[in-house]
Simulated scan of single mutants.
Amino acid sequence: MINILKYTEYLYLAVAVVSIYKIVTLWSIDPKETYIFIFFAVVSMAMFIFRRRYRKRFEQRQKENQK
């Protein structure tokens, strides 16, 4: 299960990178269209941080329970 949590972390990071790329490419054309991508980038980065902390806590609890 830990491997699945690692992959979902990086999935959120990939969504953030793609959103940032779209922000950069669309900003000069029409800044109004970039607001949704700004939202996706911010939420994806927040979810990446949240998931990483959650996984590390989960791993720590498993180590403590094994002792």
Rank of each mutant, 00 (worst) to 15 (best):
E59N: 08
V18W: 03
V15R: 08
Q60W: 09
V18K: 00
W27C: 07
V15F: 06
L11P: 03
M45R: 12
V42K: 05
R53I: 10
Y12F: 14
Y21L: 07
L11R: 09
A16W: 02
V15H: 05
T34H: 00
S19W: 02
D30L: 03
R57M: 13
D30F: 02
F50Y: 15
S28Y: 04
L26F: 01
Y21G: 07
E33V: 12
F48I: 09
R57I: 14
M47W: 01
R52D: 09
Q66K: 12
R52C: 05
T34C: 07
I20T: 07
I49A: 15
R61N: 12
T25Y: 01
I36E: 07
Y54M: 15
K32Y: 05
Y35P: 07
Q62A: 12
I4V: 13
Y7I: 15
L5Q: 09
F40T: 08
S19H: 05
S28E: 13
R61C: 13
V43E: 10
F58H: 03
Q62E: 12
R51L: 14
V17M: 08
I20A: 06
Y7A: 13
I29W: 01
F37W: 08
R51G: 14
V24T: 04
F50E: 15
S19K: 01
E33R: 14
I2W: 02
F50V: 09
Q66A: 10
M1G: 08
F58E: 00
L26H: 01
V42Q: 00
I4N: 07
Q62T: 08
I4W: 05
Y21E: 05
K56I: 14
T8H: 06
F50C: 15
M45Y: 13
V17P: 08
V24Q: 02
F50G: 11
I36T: 12
E64M: 02
K32F: 11
F50M: 13
P31L: 06
F48Y: 15
K63G: 01
I36P: 04
R52V: 09
I36K: 13
K32C: 08
N3E: 14
F39N: 11
I23D: 00
R55L: 10
I4Q: 12
I20K: 01
T25V: 05
I36G: 06
V42A: 00
V18S: 07
K22I: 03
F40N: 11
I23Y: 00
T8A: 03
Y35L: 12
I38W: 06
R61H: 11
N65A: 10
Y10R: 03
F58R: 00
I36Y: 09
V43K: 06
Q66S: 07
Y10T: 13
L13F: 10
I20L: 10
E64R: 05
N3P: 11
K63H: 03
T8G: 06
I49F: 09
S44H: 02
L11C: 10
N3A: 12
